[in-house]
Simulated assay, not measured.
Amino acid sequence: MFQVSYIIEEYQCGRTPNPDVLCNTRIKFGSFMDAISSMKFDRVASGHYANVVHPPASETDEDSVLELSQDMVKDQTYFLSHLSQAQLKRLIFPLGCLSKDEVRKLATKFDLPNKDRKDSQGICFLGKIKFNEFIARHIGENKGVILEAESGDFLGNHRGFWFYTIGQRQGLCLPGGPWYVVEKDIKNNVVFVSRNYFSDEKRRRLFRVGSLKWLNGLPPNQISQLECKVRHGPAFCNCSLIMEPGEDGHEDVAVVHLSQDDQGLAAGQFAAFYRGRTCLGSGVILESWDDQGFPVCARALEIARLEDKSLLGKPVKIKVKPENVITESGEADGTELCGGLENSRIAAAKPPTPMQQLSFIPS
């Protein structure tokens, strides 16, 4: 199955894939549309929270346009941003003009069997299988070390770098936190962490995207005044793009400059681009960062290359940061719970304020 092999390959390479985007392009509106192509349907209706504006019947050469839905929190244009124009032309989204609350009220009014169904979370084809279990079953486990990025101190062990993504907090099981995954050494199976994830001097505004796909087939004419989403959700960020030719005949890439910092940029995720309410297309975030990447000290890099990690001995005793508050139980506020990757598949970023979320979305 394409989706399974895609996820496994991406995690083995140290990236954080987004199977939902490719599920739409390859399966829901790929294989499915191919299967019904002989049935002469004019349109395919889907329950995605999005809008598509089709040209008049007399102007069939004009492009269809993907636009934001009424419900900005549930909006799913991010997951539809990698569709082709041919796919988009055949789609309609009846829920795009409604909020999720309105949809639930209608479901109750008409006594639909799924009226009380909880919102779906995670990857649809996994069903009740936990994501950690899925990864362990297909990739296995390989014990590695966790090092502090700033000092190189040996803090503990992990089950394999593929269980962690940049920005992840859950599952580290380290006291004195919060700790965040900031980098990974794929070759040596080392995870670097830091408690200074949100420090001003270690933020990212610049990244590159490849596998670009524009819904009208061409990049936008004006690429200096766009908005960008680097994850599903209502938050946008102003951005500009610089197109670069690919090396050795490979496809073009784009350098993206964000107007504000984003800590949760993870290679393998998609970046979707917008102008106003219109979704223009998307690309895959590449692992080749500029010099704004999170700095890992020379000592940490040297220890990561050490072949016999048993020479490190026992993990150091982690000191609680002075600003952490000690609770009545004696634990530091922010001590990590041993959660799983299923709660952290997409890198975490400091949540924006409501004004930040809406500041780039025209009324």
Score class of each variant (00 low, 15 high):
Q3H: 11
Q3K: 08
Y6E: 13
E10Q: 14
R15F: 10
T16M: 13
T16K: 02
P17Y: 00
P19A: 13
V21H: 00
L22Y: 11
L22N: 11
N24E: 10
I27F: 13
K28D: 06
F32L: 07
M33N: 12
S37L: 00
S38L: 09
S38D: 12
S38R: 09
K40C: 10
K40F: 07
F41P: 02
F41R: 01
V44E: 02
H48E: 07
N51V: 08
D63S: 09
L66R: 01
E67T: 15
L68A: 08
Q70K: 15
F79H: 12
L80W: 00
S81C: 09
Q85T: 09
A86V: 08
Q87D: 11
L91S: 01
F93T: 03
P94D: 10
R104W: 07
R104P: 04
L106A: 15
A107Y: 12
F110T: 11
L112P: 14
K118G: 12
G122T: 09
C124Y: 15
L126Y: 06
K130I: 07
N132K: 10
I135N: 03
E141L: 11
G144N: 04
G156Q: 06
G156N: 09
F161G: 01
F161Q: 05
F161L: 09
Q168P: 09
R169F: 07
G171F: 03
C173D: 14
G177E: 10
W179K: 01
Y180C: 12
K184H: 05
D185C: 12
N189I: 04
R195P: 06
Y197I: 04
E201C: 11
F207Y: 08
S211F: 00
L215C: 02
N216A: 06
I223H: 01
L226H: 01
K229D: 05
R231F: 03
C237F: 04
C237L: 08
N238P: 14
L241W: 01
L241G: 00
L241Y: 00
I242Y: 02
E244D: 10
P245M: 00
P245N: 12
E247S: 06
G249D: 09
H250W: 05
V253H: 00
H257S: 14
H257Q: 14
L258G: 03
L258F: 06
D262G: 05
G264T: 10
F270D: 07
F273Q: 01
Y274K: 01
R275D: 13
R275C: 09
G276R: 05
L280H: 01
S282W: 01
S282Y: 00
I285P: 04
L286Q: 14
A300Q: 08
A304S: 15
D308S: 14
S310Q: 12
L312M: 15
V320F: 00
K321Y: 11
K321W: 08
N324Y: 00
N324L: 03
V325R: 12
T335G: 02
G340H: 07
E342N: 12
E342P: 01
R345W: 03
I346S: 13
A347G: 15
A348Q: 09
A348P: 00
M355K: 11
Q357P: 05
Q357W: 02
S359W: 03
I361Q: 01
I361K: 02
S363T: 08
